[in-house]
C-alpha cells in the first residue's frame, strides 16, 4: 500500500498556555515555544507505518509512505524527523504560514495527491493550533474520494480499509474502497488499532508512536525531499479566512478550598445554588 501523510508543525501543544497575545490583539506570539509535529499527525504517521509493514517484522517495508507539509524551509526539520521514523520520501510546499488557510492547504494537497496517486491519505483529525478540523474532509471532497474522520481503528482488507470512527455516543464503522482519506483520532495508536493486510490480527503493537533510532536519523538525511512552490500546486488561490484580532480566554479565578464534604454540599446548595 502507498500512503501519503499530511503533516503540520505546531507550537508545542503541551505549553499552549504559554502563548502570548499582545494587548493590540494583532497576533498570537509563539516565540519561545518549540515547534513540534502536530500530535494527531504524529499518530497518522505511525498509522501509515503500521499499514505498510508486517507488525511482526517492521524492518521489512511492504509499502511506501510519502510525507507532505506546507511551510517555510524550517519545516524540513519536521519532514526529516518523519523520514527518520520510517517514511520513504518527503515533499514540502514552499509557503509562508501567512499565505495559508485550510481551503488553500486542501487545494494544494489535492494537486499533490493527484500526482502521487496513493492508495490512502492519512492526517490528524485536526491541527492543535488552528483547531479547525477542515483539511481532511475538504481534500476528500476535492478528490471525490470516500473518507472516515476521527478514526480509532483501521484494518486493511482487499482493496479497502475498515475504519472505526469515534462519534458522539459510540463507534461508527465504515468500509472505504480505496483510494480514500482517513483522519485519525488519538486512540489510533493503541496496541490493537491498526492492522495491515500482512499483520497477524493477534499482533499487539507497543502503545503510542515509534521513535527514530540514531542510524535512521543519519540515513534520513539522504532520503529524497522535494520542494514545490505553492503557486504550482494551488495556483491563483489566496487565503479567504482572515483573523483581525486575537484575545486570551477569560481567566477563571481560583475559588475557595472547602474542608469537607458537608461544607462542599452546603456551598453548592447555598452559595452557588447549583444543587
Amino acid at each position: 500500500m502507498k500512503v501519503l501523510v499530511a503533516l503540520k508543525r505546531v507550537a508545542d501543544p503541551d505549553n499552549a498556555n504559554k502563548i502570548k497575545i499582545p494587548p493590540s490583539g494583532e497576533k498570537i506570539d509563539t516565540a519561545g515555544l518549540e515547534w513540534k509535529l502536530n500530535p494527531f499527525d504524529d499518530y497518522a504517521l505511525e498509522t501509515a507505518l503500521r499499514l505498510t509493514e508486517n507488525g511482526k517484522n517492521p524492518k521489512a517495508r511492504l509499502g511506501e509512505v510519502v510525507v507532505v507539509t506546507l511551510g517555510p524551509k524550517e519545516c524540513e526539520t519536521t519532514l526529516r524527523a518523519a523520514l527518520a521514523t520510517g517514511a520513504d520520501r518527503a515533499i514540502r510546499v514552499e509557503a509562508t504560514d501567512e499565505e495559508l488557510d485550510g481551503r488553500i492547504v486542501a487545494a494544494a494537497l489535492k494537486t499533490i495527491i493527484a500526482e502521487e496517486k496513493p492508495d490512502l491519505v492519512l492526517m490528524g483529525k485536526q491541527a492543535v493550533d488552528g483547531d479547525n478540523n477542515q483539511v481532511g474532509q475538504s481534500v476528500a471532497e476535492l478528490l471525490d474520494w470516500p473518507m472516515a474522520t476521527f478514526a480509532a481503528t483501521i484494518t486493511e482488507e482487499a482493496g479497502a480499509v475498515v475504519v472505526g470512527r469515534e462519534v458522539d455516543g459510540g463507534v461508527l464503522t465504515l468500509k472505504l474502497g480505496l483510494p480514500a482519506v482517513v483522519t485519525v483520532d488519538l486512540r489510533i495508536v493503541a496496541p490493537t488499532s491498526v492492522y495491515s493486510a500482512q499483520t497477524d490480527r493477534a499482533h499487539k503493537y507497543a502503545e503510542g508512536v515509534r521513535f527514530a533510532a540514531l542510524p535512521a536519523i543519519m540515513a534520513a538525511k539522504k532520503k529524497p525531499l522535494v520542494v514545490k512552490p505553492l503557486a504550482e500546486v494551488a495556483g491563483g488561490m489566496s487565503r479567504t479566512a482572515h483573523y483581525s484580532k486575537f484575545e486570551p480566554p477569560p481567566q477563571r479565578k481560583a475559588g475557595v478550598k472547602v474542608q469537607d464534604v458537608a461544607e462542599l454540599v452546603a456551598k453548592l446548595a447555598g452559595e452557588a445554588k447549583v444543587i
Partner: peptide
C-alpha cells in the same frame, strides 16, 4: 484556538 488558550476573530 490553541486548545482554548486563544480566541481568534
Amino acid at each position: 484556538m490553541f486548545a482554548g488558550n486563544a480566541f481568534g476573530y
